[in-house]
């Protein structure tokens, strides 16, 4: 957890959008630099509250390399008023930033083990900082496996980077889509299906999973079936986060607040309530 959270947590710091990249029709990656001072340190898995002035605030995970100094990188999907306003910011525009907040991916705890990084759809964005960190210290880990599933070939996020990682000899990268097209030569099917095909030792492996909650439930089941213990599986939960500091209760998830106790949570702590409809 970063110690660099502002004194008044509700006051955003002004940042400028210095670069944008359209990832898909409704998904944009923004690079943000502070108008004053340094960009706070953050850990993979943490998020910021991004404020589109006059419109609203939205919780967005960091998607850049935590070791790259100077800026925050966020990948935002236009799904509503506030996220749409942020996703459509142009280079040079201003945005308010509060954060970083939340728990982190267990990249240190994973040292010495095989690592499975499993993402679905836009879930690759919050997982990408962990991928950067693991690959930056590749010698500390056993086998590294990245499994990614998305809707169609056109929806593949960070495609050039996935291709680059796939060319490495020390990472197993598998990509699948729910619906292929005439050009697609890769796998078709859901991401949990890739798990039995991946090479790892279930007794010495740690899995980090990010994606829609239903996908994570199916994936956790497949990981359990592959022999990985519940305490070795981490999920990044998503709820409607407003204050981001555990005060308002909007993101309450059982006895926890996703903004404060999450978003990264250990599966054995939440498995019993994951499928409870009222939660």
């Amino acid at each position: 957890m970063s110690a660099a959270v502002q004194a008044d947590p509700f006051v955003p710091d002004p940042y400028r959008v210095v670069r944008t990249r359209r990832e898909a029709r409704d998904i944009t990656t923004l690079e943000l630099v502070p108008l004053a001072g340094e960009r706070p340190d953050y850990l993979p898995g943490q998020f910021n509250m991004l404020y589109a002035f006059g419109v609203g605030e939205v919780a967005i995970s960091m998607s850049g390399d935590p070791a790259a100094r100077g800026s925050f990188v966020h990948t935002v999907r236009d799904v509503g008023r506030a996220s749409g306003a942020v996703a459509n910011l142009a280079a040079g525009a201003m945005v308010g930033v509060r954060g970083p907040y939340g728990s982190a991916w267990p990249t240190t705890a994973a040292e010495g083990s095989d690592v499975l990084l499993i993402a679905g759809g836009l879930g690759l964005a919050p997982l990408r900082p962990a991928i950067y960190q693991v690959l930056a210290h590749r010698e500390r880990y056993g086998r590294v496996v990245l499994l990614y599933g998305t809707r169609t070939p056109d929806d593949i996020l960070y495609r050039p980077q996935l291709e680059q990682w796939r060319r490495r000899l020390d990472v197993q990268v598998m990509v699948t889509v729910d619906h292929g097209d005439a050009e697609w030569r890769g796998d078709v099917g859901v991401v949990p299906k890739l798990i039995p095909r991946a090479g790892f030792d279930p007794h010495h492996a740690l899995a980090m999973v990010c994606g829609p909650e239903v996908m994570m439930r199916f994936t956790a089941d497949a990981l359990r079936q592959a022999g990985i213990g519940m305490e070795q599986i981490y999920l990044s939960m998503e709820r409607n986060m407003k204050c981001a500091i555990g005060l308002c209760g909007h993101c309450q998830f059982g006895a926890d607040f996703v903004c404060k106790d999450g978003p990264v949570m250990r599966y054995d702590r939440i498995a019993d309530i994951l499928a409870v409809r009222e939660i």
Binding site: V79, P212, V214
Partner: peptide, 17 residues
């Protein structure tokens, strides 16, 4: 059957908030 269920749920489709 499980995989088909997950596939037809189209979980990566856009959800309006």
């Amino acid at each position: 059957l499980d995989e088909t269920r997950l596939q037809i749920l189209d979980v990566y489709g856009k959800r309006e908030t």
